[in-house]
């Protein structure tokens, strides 16, 4: 199951925090911790965050749940971070992040960080079309787009360079 979805920018400012299960830490400390670990990673490394500090930080997972897995992706100025447990496929989550970003891109037409800043409620609604209560609801971009609807167009300000959506897709959808 998915335990949390976080979006923060390259300075560590949260843009969206969604927790599906209560975690031990406050969302701020969690975001800061994960940001500090991710931010130090140069590009080209794997998308799974695994660090000795993190294991101690997230605490032990119950036996059935397997281990915590922090999967992240970097798009332009934003980090998309999913915290999941052993019931989720690691590579599948990478694709899910991609689906999420594609949906945002459709909704906001060339999505940029400012869209997320000013429409954080819309981002929540789009996320709610993909994940409900920590379980994946829908993975088809068309379906999600059809349900989401009604998003106000992005503010015509300062479009950050186009999002890096050309990343390997593992799944043949």
């Amino acid at each position: 199951m998915i335990h949390a979805v976080l979006i923060f920018n390259t300075s560590g400012v949260p843009r969206l925090t969604k927790f599906y299960t209560p975690l031990q830490q406050s969302s701020q400390t969690l975001v800061q911790k994960i940001y500090s670990l991710i931010h130090n990673r140069p590009g080209g490394l794997c998308n799974f965050l695994d660090a000795p500090e993190l294991e101690a930080f997230l605490g032990p997972k119950d036996e059935v749940g397997g281990r915590w897995q922090v999967v992240y992706r970097n798009y332009a100025t934003l980090y998309f971070v999913f915290i999941v447990d052993g019931a989720e496929s690691e590579l599948g989550i990478l694709d899910l992040i991609q689906v999420f970003v594609e949906c945002l891109d459709r909704a906001f037409e060339n999505v940029c960080e400012l869209d997320l800043v000013f429409h954080f409620d819309e981002v929540h609604h789009i996320l709610a079309e993909i994940i409900q209560g920590g379980l994946v609801l829908e993975t088809n971009v068309e379906e999600i787009d059809a349900c989401g609807g009604g998003v106000t167009p992005a503010l015509p300000v300062l479009v950050v360079e186009s999002t890096n959506v050309l990343v390997p897709i593992w799944l043949i959808l």
């Binding site: 990673r41 140069p42 490394l45 794997c46 965050l49 695994d50």
Partner: peptide, 9 residues
């Protein structure tokens, strides 16, 4: 490996 995640595994 330069990646600490991979090192840990």
């Amino acid at each position: 490996d330069q990646d600490i995640s991979i090192r840990m595994r």
